[in-house]
Design a protein around this nucleic acid. Structure first.
Lengths: 339, 339
DNA sequence: CTGAAAGCGCTAACAG
DNA sequence: CTGTTAGCGCTTTCAG
């Protein structure tokens, strides 16, 4: 077992310069003569030297590590977001330390403490609710945090989401235009801001047309619960259209409708989801949905976080990015609308 | 901006003990009197003290960080594996620093260097090929690495996979028993050990029955390429059964078969995949496949890695875990076989 | 521009 | 068991 990291001192010796000179050549905002840099680079190369990020973090107070808390990787939206987030951060010289949180709220606090132990420069919380204690704790530790795909009611934390309210409205308008009047909603987890906003937008647009929700059941954002909710909802007086709070559940709803209840989509019932996960585009589902613009959400999240880190800002920003309704085959297309 | 981490020195002062006493109370293999521990814990609690993991890592040489390299999060098998891996590691007091690799081999080297910069205690490479230089570099750095869901031909690295060869055989035997004789194969990326092993097992069992592969096309493990491969394969003299090298591609193959080519599954053609990703179980696909026992693969991977880390072993272990054929509706069930 | 020196926060001998 | 003393490898004043 050869634990052999080359140190800057060794490089210094070989290059015939001081250890600080080595440090300077590898520190972006340096000030070293061309000649020194050259000698050092050469020696470093020969020895296979690379700076120890942890040591650097200790003294500089900047670890270039971002803690990412994420919960449901089963919902395809999250692996996708994780990938984009991590790539964007990597591109900016940061790396992601990942923490999987159970959905149980209590757990989150412990997770955040653990993250803080790593002296992360910032935290991205994807789709988890934060207690205000927690956000206070991070603020006290001087670690900025931004919520991804969730927002907090108290405006204490930066958050990036899609425009869930507007998305909910679009879906209602679309369903209404399609002639539907018996419209059901399969909700996700009631505690989520995404759920509340999507439903609120949906209901409001329905109300403006004088239509009330025909039926409602909760699927908690899981496929199993969504399937169960579907069975309940369709047991008697079934709706002729359903807005499912996210695509992940909508897939299960469609399977249940078709293969358990023997219904035709969209002839017997229209189904609309939210997120536009990859599976929504698969031909077997061909799910009409509102796209959450993951790229722009990620870009904004990273932007806000790094701005807070690098410019020591603490301004709270909350962004909701509008996403388009993606017309596919799972819902009746209103006359005049083009796919 | 209050960058306010409490230090062990501050706790020591408040508790009226030495700084080392504080360190000892928070170091597992400690030796401190009950009274001291109590005083320290109290003071720490009051101050909200938590040890700085990075500082600890510097002096102890153990960061409790595991670098995880992963490539295609789009294939559902990986988010699932990532989740289990991370959870298992978290349970053992380690955390995961994630690195997304492009599939381009050259990139990997740079990624590994970056990982090493973080003084990780070990590396898990999920589904990426390693140059032997690379493995040499890690060995030199004293950082153990284990491959997950890939193995290396030169036996220089520990690797955990499912028994891909046996899986391939099972599929051939199943298809043969179902009466198929015109059997096609849609391959993944030719460079992957999983591809080679699955296909080798498949071909060998076919050969034993005196059956040759009817047709073959490569899908590179992507949905688009798999769809294209399907179109090519079915353009003329189509097979009556296809073994697709993984589920991710198989989903695209099924969609293409059904919705573009208008074929019935399994009446016109049987489709079998490999992995048993969540989507394989969704009713819209109901895909017959060989399950990769993710839990056991993860358990073994973590076991091997932590053993090398904690016991300073460097024994190379290569494990292939047998996974069952999961009978579903996408392929004709042979008489006498029960679902 | 460059070297010397002082730590970052912590663990691990080392005496007591 | 406990305090004292060295550093881990690096960045950053501080003189020069």
């Amino acid at each position: 077992m050869t634990k052999n990291r080359v140190t800057s001192a060794e490089v210094a010796e070989r290059a015939g310069v001081s250890q600080s000179a080595v440090s300077r050549t590898f520190t972006p905002g340096a000030s070293a003569s061309k000649k020194t840099v050259e000698k050092v680079r050469k020696a470093a190369e020969e020895l296979g030297y690379r700076p120890n990020v942890l040591a650097r973090a200790m003294v500089s107070g900047k670890s270039r590590i971002i803690g990412l808390v994420v919960a449901y990787l089963e919902n395809q939206f999250y692996p996708e977001a994780l990938e984009k987030l991590s790539n964007e951060l990597q591109k900016r010289g940061y790396h992601v330390l990942i923490f999987l949180a159970e959905q149980t709220a209590g757990n989150i606090d412990a997770v955040v403490e653990e993250i803080l132990d790593y002296q992360v420069d910032g935290i991205i919380a994807a789709s988890v609710a934060m207690s205000s204690d927690l956000s206070e704790r991070c603020r006290a530790a001087g670690v900025p945090m931004v919520l991804f795909n969730r927002s907090q009611d108290d405006g204490h934390m930066s958050a990036v989401t899609s425009d869930n309210y507007a998305g909910g409205r679009k879906i209602a308008e679309f369903l209404l235009a399609g002639g539907h009047r018996k419209i059901g909603h399969i909700a996700g987890w009631e505690g989520a801001s995404t759920q509340r906003d999507r439903e609120a937008g949906f209901i409001s647009a329905l109300a403006e047309a004088g239509v009330a929700l025909h039926s409602r059941a909760a699927g908690e954002f899981t496929m199993e619960k969504a399937a169960a909710a579907t069975r309940t909802m369709f047991a008697s007086d079934p709706p002729d259209a359903v807005f499912v709070a996210n695509d992940h559940m909508a897939l299960a709803v469609m399977d249940t409708l078709r293969f358990e209840l023997g219904l035709q989509i969209p002839c017997d019932v229209s189904v609309v989801g939210f997120d536009d996960v990859p599976a929504a585009g698969w031909l077997a589902y061909d799910l009409t949905t509102v796209r959450q613009p993951a790229n722009r959400m990620v870009a904004n999240t990273v932007e806000i976080l790094l701005d807070q880190i690098e410019n020591d800002t603490s301004e709270i920003r909350r962004i909701a990015i509008d996403g388009p309704l993606i017309l596919r085959g799972s819902a009746r297309i209103p006359k005049g609308w083009t796919i």
